[in-house]
């Protein structure tokens, strides 16, 4: 039976969430509408929820490059899936190790990990390491490895979750039963922290999905494995560069729908990710019910 008071709290939750949802969705609608706006209209009246004149020109321009874009999607999906799965698992395994309080050297490892959050050698030396020692230039590893695979922040969040939300007694009894650490991790810690895996997985996936810098630096311009964001970013940045630098006026940017295309590009880039979220959410909820264990 639900008490009256609980209902009021629920109503308050609804009100707050409805306001926030509107605030979140409205700009996205604007983005969508802008991408369908006629170029001249967009330049005259700015972006608007109710454009005077619609047009599919921006999408026509993008679809004229479809061969490239379709392949870009494929590369991005492969990289995102592999990167997210590998990244999340190795982060979680490290976090699992670190969550064991009596592990010798735990503080040192934690320190070394935190250190990486603050210090980085910069693009140049990363590039030297990756291309001169590991020779990943123009390979798919060039999209996967540099910078994105895992980060200390996720490890620390995992560790904190393991420490506070998984009852230690459960792990200890498994150990007493003779289960190996890998088994305990896979059979107990992982299922119990599924929502955390989803949360971290979502950010990792988003980072891979949105990344264009690795493609820009670790692939040559003739590479056949350009990711979708690298391609979209190239279109965008080059339009911008040409406008800003007035390089001899030899290329007319006039026939590219610049004002609406940047919106269409954003839509093309973001929609598949949005479509994936309900799937993530299902796991999240599933994990949530499993995770609420009693201690």
């Amino acid at each position: 039976m639900i008490e009256n008071k609980d209902k009021w709290w629920s109503y308050a939750g609804h009100i707050v969430m409805i306001i926030l949802s509107i605030v979140a969705i409205a700009p996205f609608l604007l983005l969508l509408m802008s991408s369908f706006t006629d170029e001249a209209t967009a330049l005259k009246n700015g972006y608007s929820f109710f454009p005077e004149k619609f047009s599919l020109n921006a999408y026509h321009y993008i679809s004229s490059q479809w061969e490239m874009i379709g392949k870009g999607y494929l590369i991005t999906i492969i990289v995102t899936v592999v990167g997210t799965v590998v990244g999340v698992i190795i982060s979680a395994m490290l976090a699992y190790t670190l969550s064991k309080h009596d592990l010798p050297g735990r503080n040192l490892l934690m320190f070394l990990l935190t250190f990486t959050m603050l210090f980085n050698g910069g693009l140049t030396s990363s590039y030297i390491v990756y291309t001169q020692i590991f020779h990943i230039k123009d390979t798919i590893l060039g999209l996967l490895l540099p910078g994105l695979l895992m980060n200390a922040y996720n490890v620390v969040m995992f560790k904190n979750y393991f420490e506070h939300s998984i009852p230690n007694a459960l792990l200890e009894s498994a150990r007493i039963d003779g289960a190996t650490e890998l088994n305990i991790f896979a059979k107990i810690s992982m299922p119990l922290s599924l929502p955390m895996f989803v949360t971290v997985g979502l950010t990792t996936a988003l980072m891979y999905w949105n990344d264009w810098t690795n493609g820009m630096y670790y692939l040559s311009t003739n590479s056949s494995i350009q990711s979708i964001q690298t391609i979209l970013n190239n279109i965008n940045e080059n339009i911008k560069f040409l406008q800003q630098n007035n390089v001899g006026n030899m290329v007319s940017t006039g026939d590219m729908p610049s004002a609406t295309i940047r919106m269409a590009i954003a839509v093309v880039g973001v929609v598949p990710m949005l479509g994936l979220f309900p799937i993530f959410q299902r796991w999240f909820v599933k994990g949530a019910t499993a995770g609420a264990v009693k201690e």
């Binding site: 693009l123 140049t124 590039y127 820009m216 630096y217 040559s220 311009t221 003739n222 190239n234 940045e237 080059n238 911008k240 560069f241 040409l242 390089v247």
Partner: peptide, 15 residues
């Protein structure tokens, strides 16, 4: 011949 993306030229050459 290897193309260098115009907007990113300074970085690419430095690397």
């Amino acid at each position: 011949l290897e193309g260098v993306s115009l907007y990113n030229m300074a970085n690419v050459y430095a690397l």
